[in-house]
């Protein structure tokens, strides 16, 4: 079972102990196992290697691998905490835990901040906001003039950038989202509450006894 035994390299990817994942997330052991059913589906869509690559992630999000999205890319990279270009089940489950309705608000705030801090500079800059706005508009086919876009960004920074340095730092982001909770709407997935009923087949593979 050694991690570095080269003979075991071709062994199919094994589920990380669900009890450990459950202890580190808001999920119960059964929920972790049900989530694994979703993970198996996504991770076998292109290459059945037990890992989710970027293409499979985009395919699951958009139902097409032709679509490119800076957001999907950023979300994938944030999920990929080991930074090796693929998501193992532990990374997938731990990241999705942040999206659970019962996850702590500060985790959602932190994740959303890192999401929008595209350049990973520790703050959200004006250029990043414009870049993300243009991407969203292009995605939805909505057309706004540059003047209107600049105006919206001006207003947003007027409100958010309370230190007036042209940047939205973590504290400013926190204040902004507490004023506008709807900005965190996409950080909560109601689906995660019903994960065991969505994927009931997990009971056939369960490695733990019911308590």
């Amino acid at each position: 079972l050694g991690c570095c035994d080269t003979k075991n390299r071709k062994t199919p990817y094994r589920l990380e102990n669900p009890e450990i994942i459950a202890s580190e997330t808001v999920f119960s052991v059964s929920e972790v196992e049900a989530l694994y059913e979703l993970y198996k589906k996504i991770s076998s869509a292109v290459v059945d290697d037990g890992l989710i690559n970027k293409e499979e992630f985009q395919l699951a999000l958009f139902k097409t691998n032709k679509k490119e999205s800076i957001f999907a890319e950023r979300v994938f990279n944030l999920f990929d905490t080991k930074n090796n270009g693929v998501l193992d089940f532990g990374e997938f489950a731990r990241a999705l835990s942040i999206f659970h309705p019962d996850a702590p608000l500060n985790e959602k705030i932190d994740f959303s901040f890192r999401l929008y801090d595209l350049k990973q500079q520790g703050y959200i800059g004006r250029e990043e906001v414009k870049h993300m706005m243009l991407a969203t508009l292009a995605e939805s086919g909505m057309n706004l003039s540059d003047e209107v876009i600049e105006n919206i960004i001006d207003k947003t920074f007027e409100e958010a950038d309370t230190k007036h340095d042209g940047r939205i730092d973590k504290d400013e982001w926190e204040s902004l989202v507490l004023q506008h909770p709807s900005l965190l709407k996409n950080m909560t997935l109601q689906y995660l509450r019903d994960i065991t009923t969505t994927f009931p087949s997990f009971v056939f593979y369960s490695q733990v006894e019911d308590t």
């Binding site: 939805s140 960004i153 947003t156 900005l183 969505t198």
Partner: peptide
Amino acid sequence: TKPVTMNAFELISRSQGLNLSNLFEK
């Protein structure tokens, strides 16, 4: 009170790429 205006992040947060509920849809 401030006038109600569209916040840039409100618009951005509607991006399809940020809607992870799609992962659960068949």
